[in-house]
């Protein structure tokens, strides 16, 4: 074998493999290895003083049904929170992209700047707004309603989700609407479509990728939410994140916690796979493709 061929072999054969090594190592070390550890802990047993003791049992997975309420709470509130956030964010993004004109920059800044403050402080502040001496007192002073309870209700949790995650929904939708060529909507109008038909048949489908990314950006972190159910829900509507924190920090049952966390990761994987399937379906053959 000549020198030249050897060199070319290594360049074509081992070169790319070598180049991929850091990425592979990264995945093995920071994704695969922790998942293995999580699985090993989840089939172990709780130590006498808490923590983990080696063992092999599937009992922890059987125990998961005792955490059914937090699992259902998490899914329910995440779906509801995402839908409400979307319903509020879409018109706002539409206004910013289409109608705001030069005010756009200021309005965007007004939305984003509050989020430079810690989420804990912003959420804690809501406990005073929603408490008896806050909005309920204003309502009662105005003679509108008496004895309104807002704090530590499901409403407060949804409000907390919408308030904290609105920008994550707003920005992707805004970007997709902003990129929309005004000529498309003009063409739709020329071809006789009304405003509603144009929105339904042109604007909405073209902003679907933004809507989907926004929904995922909101849904996934809300599924892992811990703070909002504690501060605005009074610990009465538990999320998975709260159940997990209890298992690791209070009852120190690591194996059950690992089983719950592992199942949660599995559940989220389904969501992400479903999302990418949906994205491909919705953004694949777009009606614009023939035109552009």
């Amino acid at each position: 074998m000549s020198r030249k061929t050897m060199a070319s072999t290594s360049r074509r054969g081992r070169g790319p493999a070598l180049a991929a090594t850091p990425a592979v190592l990264w995945f093995l070390l920071f994704m695969f290895a922790p998942l293995v550890v999580l699985f090993v802990v989840s089939v172990g047993v709780r130590g006498p003083g808490g923590g983990y003791q080696p063992g092999f049992t599937l009992a922890n997975y059987g125990e998961l049904q005792t955490r059914l309420v937090p699992i259902l709470n998490t899914i329910e509130f995440s779906l509801l929170g995402t839908v409400v956030t979307l319903l509020l964010a879409y018109p706002l993004a539409y206004y910013l992209a289409m109608k705001a004109g030069r005010k756009k920059v200021v309005l965007l800044a007004l939305i984003i700047v509050p989020f430079w403050t810690s989420m804990l402080i912003r959420t804690y502040a809501w406990t005073f707004l929603l408490g008896s001496k806050g909005i309920p007192e204003v309502l009662s002073a105005m003679g509108l309603a008496d004895d309104v309870r807002l704090l530590n209700t499901p409403f407060a949790i949804v409000l907390g989700i919408v308030y904290n995650y609105l920008p994550l929904m707003l920005l992707p939708i805004y970007v997709s609407l902003e990129r929309l060529d005004p000529a498309l909507r003009a063409a739709s109008k020329d071809l006789g479509a009304g405003r509603l038909a144009t929105f339904r048949q042109v604007t909405l489908p073209l902003s679907a990728p933004g809507v989907l990314s926004g929904c995922l950006l909101v849904f996934i972190p809300v599924m892992g939410e811990y703070l909002i159910p504690v501060l605005l829900g009074g610990g009465r509507s538990y999320f998975l994140g709260n159940a997990l924190a209890d298992l690791f920090l209070q009852s120190r049952n690591w194996p059950l916690g690992a089983a719950l966390a592992g199942s949660f990761i599995l559940l989220m994987s389904f969501v992400v796979v479903g999302y990418s399937w949906l994205t491909r379906r919705l953004t694949g053959p777009l009606p614009t493709e023939g035109v552009l």
Binding site: G50, T66, G235, Y238, N242, A243, S251
Partner: peptide, 16 residues
């Protein structure tokens, strides 16, 4: 303080 059953009971109450 160390009772696993007591800790688990409390966690279940909160998770209900």
């Amino acid at each position: 303080y160390n009772s696993p059953l007591r800790a688990e009971t409390w966690a279940r109450i909160k998770s209900s």
